[in-house]
Amino acid sequence: MKTNDVILQTVAKIVVFIILTFSVFLFFAGHNNPGGGFIGGLVTAAALVLLALAFDLETIRKVVPVDFRKVMAVGLLIALLTGIGSLVLEVPFLSHTFGHWDLPLLGDTELATATLFDLGVYLAVVGVTMTIILSIGEDH
């Protein structure tokens, strides 16, 4: 059956970028405000699902040519490594720290190791969600 989804496709093309930007914002907001890697990852996944709805799974594979299982593994590995870092430094597992640096353009910026952990969470969430959705949607 051929449906007329011009409107959906056109809107999706624009909205996806807004959603992706918002997810990045959420990700960085998460350190001191509501947000974080988990919700950011879910929003990113939502953007990709919107693409999948408007077009089809083949398009998703072309636009984002990564194996989401690997994304999940990379995310888990990053999160784990930040934890293991504290083993090397001989502080309790999963300890975090932060400091202030003067970065070009951004000025005085707070950098925290918790963000790295959050990045891992972000990737893991995107990976898991997309794996689940793709494996449900794959079969017809």
Partner: peptide, 21 residues
Amino acid sequence: MNNLLIMPLLVPLVTAVVLIF
């Protein structure tokens, strides 16, 4: 402070993640 405690859990966890690759 005793990170030894987490090791029996970390070893299989890291292994599992590495195996996915």
